[in-house]
Design a protein around this nucleic acid. Structure first.
Lengths: 356, 356
DNA sequence: CGGGAGAGTTAAACCGTTTACACAAGGGGA
DNA sequence: TCCCCTTGTGTAAACGGTTTAACTCTCCCG
């Protein structure tokens, strides 16, 4: 036996459909049908059953129901961490859309560790999630891609959709929906904006080889420099991750390292910008009077520090991910969506001082 | 039959333990035992089974496993929204602790709607979650409390623990773990800090009747005024919710409404403080030179706007919630925990100008 | 008065796993 | 040689629902 009948067990066993049937004086099948409402039934029986359900405070066992083939499945989302505004907003979009489609939403955090991400995906496969949404920015290691590709195929076989959100495709052979936003275009536009304001030495904070988001953004930065005939100085590209304290560190190091050789800063995201701004202020440099500063994302704390930045539709990203996964059965559904971005001009960029 | 055998079905059925058993030439029970590793087995059998598992890429069906009585259950957390830094940090703590205890974490958002919150709790009951964590700040309506109390009893009956996080108990009769932090004490300390700096007219932004968090904080504010013999002017208490745009609105209204009759502002949280700061700056008032400003929470964007605030251990709150729920079987576990807070002095509060 | 038609209900099979119990083979002590 | 114990595996009964196929009534029509 799976479990002893435990008629003498201390704690009570939850109410089952059998209890309801007995209490209402009908069969189990009748209760099931009346509750699902998919079958005609006599009003008097219906009343009896509903009363029994209320009196016993019955709720169905989701495991049993899932096992029996009913599919009110769930959507899973894997992010680095929920405290990062970027992930939080995407997650919020996923949540909202999942709720709208009547799905439960499971959130997992990987902490940026590919190993944990793979483990969570495997877990979701066990849970028979309807869709698994992987959000952004992971090291594109070859062995990792190979394994994830394998999982993607397994998920698809089990009728589950893999959605890559703000992250590039795993290759044409791998079944996955991709929802991205235009990192390169946004960075290009922002860099052009800085150049138009007369800046020719723009410090880029947050380069990170192997990570797709920073790589796309720096590509836009470089392309804009080239398009406007501004010489590209690799010495102006600073390595770092996308956290606030890293922004602080990068700027500190730069200021401590010698005379200031830039008039503007383009941070890879708003968090870095916020950290860099703090380091600048500690050094007595005002934004935008002494140094212009631009970010990317348009998330808190951008409005609080008057940051000129690139707006990304984060919630829409999450919503689209879920929507595409749900609709992917219908023929015309696209498998790759690229969301646009737009500049948000606040007050952190000023005309370059020609003397600088 | 529950489902036709579908030997001719288009899409493949996921691999079951039976497939593995057949493929390895052993019985289903043997596969189960070898995979769970709780039983002795011959090395040669073990090898065969493991190879079959690998070749078929088998993962167990979590529904079936759950039904059969194995309990690697999950932890559920219900928050207003994941984009609010306050909830995000608590959720992060819950996630981390749940992961550490080997539990899956389900996140639901209620949008502050008691009705949806109740619905999610019911859903979690179906899912047989091991613990349900409800986070903060809901309207303490009587009918709602009654229903939630009923659910709490039902959850307990099903062996599931209800944890109220940053929210008061439902009453002594209701089985629930409560993890709070000291709102009143923190607000008292901050108000005292402002009074010590010479402020006697402190504007409180974010009063909200019926909501426990603002009510506790304003109680601390009033108590501190009384303790230091500063007259209490109800006209200095402004109603509003705990969002950034509300902080902006409240301060705007106040400044537009007449001459400034306060020298310091105590915002009910950092978000309100950030909004209020923006309104002040638009009016040409500098923080802290013209007006002192204090917040509550110590979450982004507090460090970016140099906000003096009250630090709350948000992650610890979430972690404690999960930990207590897991350990609640062992006798000595407390059912009510109050976490401390501490002042974080930055640069948004200055000595009051006696003339003001 | 026999015989569909159709509404309402029930018994039983099935979903995929775990596990109590049965059982076979092999080894060692009496 | 016999018996018992250990070790490894198989059989079958749960777990709690859903669904199919069969069955029992009424009712209506020829």
């Amino acid at each position: 036996m799976a479990r002893r009948p435990t008629p003498d067990d201390g704690r009570a066993r939850p109410t089952t459909i059998r209890d309801v049937a007995r209490h209402a004086g009908v069969s189990v099948a009748t209760v099931s049908r009346i509750l699902s409402g998919t079958y005609p039934s006599a009003p008097v029986t219906r009343t009896k059953v509903m009363r029994a359900v209320r009196e016993l405070d019955y709720v169905a066992n989701a495991h049993a129901r899932g096992l029996a083939g009913v599919q009110p499945k769930s959507v899973a989302i894997v992010v680095n961490s929920v405290t990062s505004p970027h992930y939080a907003h995407v997650a919020q979009g996923v949540q909202e859309q999942a709720a709208r489609e009547g799905r439960l939403c499971v959130v997992g955090t990987s902490g940026g560790d590919p190993e944990r991400e793979l483990a969570i995906v495997q877990l979701m496969r066990e849970q028979h999630a309807e869709a698994v949404v992987l959000v952004g920015n992971i090291s594109a290691d070859d062995a990792y891609r190979e394994r994830m590709a394998g999982y993607a195929r397994a998920l698809t076989l089990a009728g589950c959709h893999l959605v890559l959100c703000g992250r590039p495709s795993l290759g044409p052979e791998v079944p996955a929906i991709v929802v991205e936003y235009d990192n390169t275009g946004g960075a290009h536009a922002m860099t052009s904006h800085l150049i138009a304001a007369g800046h020719r030495r723009v410090l880029f904070l947050g380069r990170r080889a192997g990570y797709t988001t920073p790589e796309s953004r720096i590509a836009g930065y470089r392309a804009a420099l080239a398009a406007h005939g501004v010489p590209h100085d690799p010495g102006l590209e600073v390595d770092g991750t996308m956290e606030r304290h890293e922004g602080y560190r990068m700027m500190r190091d730069r200021l401590d390292g010698g005379p200031r050789d830039f008039t503007a800063v383009f941070a890879c995201n708003d968090q870095i910008a916020a950290g860099a701004r703090q380091a600048l202020r500690e050094e007595g440099l005002r934004v935008p009077d002494d140094v212009s500063l631009a970010g990317f994302d348009d998330l808190p704390p951008a409005p609080d520090i008057d940051l000129t930045t690139v707006h990304v539709q984060h919630k829409e990203l999450g919503r689209t991910a879920v929507r595409l996964a749900m609709e992917s059965e219908v023929p015309g559904t696209p498998e790759h969506v690229l969301l646009g971005t737009r500049l948000v001009i606040r007050d952190s960029v000023r005309q370059a001082c020609p003397a600088a």
